[in-house]
């Protein structure tokens, strides 16, 4: 049941039109950050107001919405955002990646490959990949205009000089279609390869910073690196202790105060589906660990 006091998907039509126009321009200029008149939402900045506005502008009553935070459907903020759209848009929701038509995410790309017909909406805190090198928007805008990305390469190279490798583990910058350097939101760099050539539409919303950007399907997205230090998508060197997957991104759980740890899939839907198919891990309840 939708809340009658508010318009469908909360935002008024004029606001949705404004966001929709920004989304179309974002798709036309992949990786470029389109300024938009971000609204003050009934949840705090930092909680996903950009993603929520993008989702609200995209939703139709026929959609099935999935919301994840850290890969999980049951984290409190994912629950809260899902409820917001149940209440204001009356849309069906799902926890299954394959069943979802719109997925709003914070910090992860689902393990299950996405398909045409799906939209992945990212919540973005700081959309400007150059922000930590240059705090002024007036400067970074010029740098994008002139494709002046040398500073970024210098920073990455300094990492290599100091640490022997590029010491950026998440929000790892990418170059889109050989033009704009883009912040992929704070996803682990493990997820970066999924940005490229993805059949789904990927939309990015930064509410507080009032920016929207996008990756059309099958876009060319390259993680910045050097020939002698190529990008690698790393993860903890373990298998999931519940489903046994050796290829999924893992959460680390500390299980006692003596340093005992276990590793479980961060993507709860992926893990549950594998367990339902009979896969098990080191600590599966079945006890028949491989």
């Amino acid at each position: 049941m939708t809340d009658q006091a508010y318009n469908f998907a909360y935002l008024d039509e004029q606001t949705k039109r404004m966001i929709r126009r920004a989304l179309l321009k974002a798709l036309a200029i992949p990786g470029y950050q389109v300024p938009f008149a971000s609204r003050e939402m009934p949840m705090p900045y930092g909680w996903g107001t950009g993603g929520v506005q993008v989702t609200a502008a995209c939703l139709t009553p026929d959609d099935r919405l999935k919301v994840i935070d850290q890969g999980a459907d049951d984290t409190t903020n994912a629950v809260s955002i899902r409820r917001f759209f149940q209440r204001t848009a009356g849309v069906a929701t799902t926890e299954r990646t394959t069943d979802a038509t719109v997925i709003q995410t914070r910090h992860r790309i689902p393990e299950q490959p996405l398909a045409e017909g799906q939209i992945l909406v990212y919540q973005v805190p700081i959309p400007e990949p150059l922000r930590f090198l240059e705090p002024r928007e007036t400067e970074t805008r010029k740098m994008h205009e002139l494709e002046e990305y040398g500073l970024m390469h210098v920073k990455l190279y300094e990492d290599i000089a100091r640490h022997g490798e590029i010491a950026t583990a998440y929000a790892y910058p990418v170059r889109v279609e050989g033009r704009y350097v883009m912040d992929p939101s704070p996803i682990p760099k493990f997820d970066n390869p999924k940005l490229a050539g993805n059949p789904a539409i990927q939309l990015f919303g930064a509410g507080r910073e009032a920016r929207i950007y996008a990756l059309p399907p099958y876009s060319d997205v390259v993680s910045l690196d050097f020939e002698d230090h190529p990008f690698t998508a790393s993860k903890a060197d373990h298998a999931c202790d519940l489903c046994g997957s050796g290829s999924s991104y893992l959460d680390e759980v500390i299980t006692d105060d003596r340093g005992t740890r276990m590793f479980v899939c961060s993507d709860t839907d992926f893990c549950a589906a594998r367990q339902a198919q009979g896969h098990c891990g080191r600590l599966s309840p079945q006890g028949d660990a491989p």
Partner: peptide, 25 residues
């Protein structure tokens, strides 16, 4: 203050995916 308090306080939300990436590194 609505922008600043939101962004400031959001760091209490789960960040274990990012933190895990840093831990691993």
């Amino acid at each position: 203050n609505i922008q600043s308090t939101g962004f400031l306080e959001h760091i209490k939300l789960p960040h274990y995916v990012d933190f895990q990436a840093e831990l691993e590194l």
